[in-house]
């Protein structure tokens, strides 16, 4: 049942992404179909995650499969919320949903092992830390998707206009709003992670690879916001820089486990 529900979710997400792309390229309004498919996929995915949680006795925090699955879920949730709440975000689905689809494809080729839930994970700080991290990545995805449309030439500009953003300046403002949200939530992720690390391993910061690269992502975000507000970067430069920060964040979240054998979660 767990696998079937996950399959249904993947199908829903995949179709939603396809509809978003077709809508953008063919200039069709398929928004209700995208919302319906995303919401349906999200419900099926939620049920699948809940069943797995019940079966293995812990949340999706341990194995690469679990991390990817929970991120697909949270990115879709954040994007759907933005899609419903901010109309101008809708054209960005043509960029954001294919990215989520790539994560899904990765998840499907990853071994779904249960992993072992360390005792140091039995704390509410885990949920706060992971939750803030997921909102951070979701907000950054929305920002980057808008940014990618901004630098995609006439098709991107057309899509943004269709969403009610007639010029680059307004599109940039939208991207910056979500970037600011991402910055606040990444800050909260780092603070709650430090509190947890102090309780669990007796140090609030140890420059382990994931801490190092999370801090570098925070620094890049801070530098970008500072440059934008004090040096008046051009909208396209801002959009490119946002895409760069997003790539850095993705490499940090999903690439570090492959680069380093050091366990962010401490000795098991």
């Amino acid at each position: 049942m767990e696998a079937q529900l996950l399959g249904a979710a993947v199908a829903g997400y995949g179709l939603a992404g396809s509809f978003a792309l077709v809508g953008t390229v063919m200039r069709r309004r398929l928004e209700m179909a995208v919302v319906g498919l995303l919401a349906g996929g999200l419900l099926a995915h939620t049920a699948s995650l809940a069943l797995r949680w019940e079966r293995v006795g812990h949340g999706p925090f341990i194995s690469m499969f679990e991390v990817l699955s929970s991120n697909v879920w949270s990115l879709t949730l954040v994007f759907l919320a933005a899609y419903l709440r901010v109309r101008a975000v809708r054209p960005a689905a043509a960029v954001a949903l294919p990215f989520i689809f790539v994560l899904m494809a990765w998840m499907l080729v990853t071994h779904p092992d249960d992993g072992h839930f360390p005792a140091t994970y039995r704390t509410l700080w885990l949920y706060a830390h992971v939750g803030f991290g997921k909102v951070f990545l979701g907000a950054l995805l929305v920002s980057a998707a808008v940014g990618v449309l901004m630098v995609s030439g006439p098709p991107g500009a057309r899509a943004l206009r269709a969403g009610g953003l007639p010029d680059e300046a307004r599109a940039e403002q939208l991207a910056l709003r979500f970037l600011a949200l991402a910055f606040v939530f990444e800050s909260m992720m780092l603070v709650t992670g430090a509190i947890w690390a102090q309780d669990a391993w007796g140090r609030y910061w140890a420059w382990d690879p994931l801490e190092t690269w999370s801090f570098l992502t925070w620094l890049a975000l801070a530098g970008l916001l500072h440059a934008r507000f004090t040096l008046r970067l051009a909208p396209r430069a801002t959009a490119l820089a946002i895409a760069g920060v997003f790539v850095l964040a993705v490499l940090t979240f999903f690439g570090m486990p492959f680069v380093s054998t050091a366990l962010h979660k401490g000795a098991i």
Partner: peptide, 25 residues
């Protein structure tokens, strides 16, 4: 100066990378 801030953010970033990559920090 705000321009120096930007340069120093980059410098801190480089120092962090160096700290992570060099044996012993």
């Amino acid at each position: 100066s705000p321009r120096l801030t930007l340069a120093l953010i980059a410098l801190v970033g480089l120092a962090v990378i160096g700290h992570a990559r060099v044996e012993g920090g």
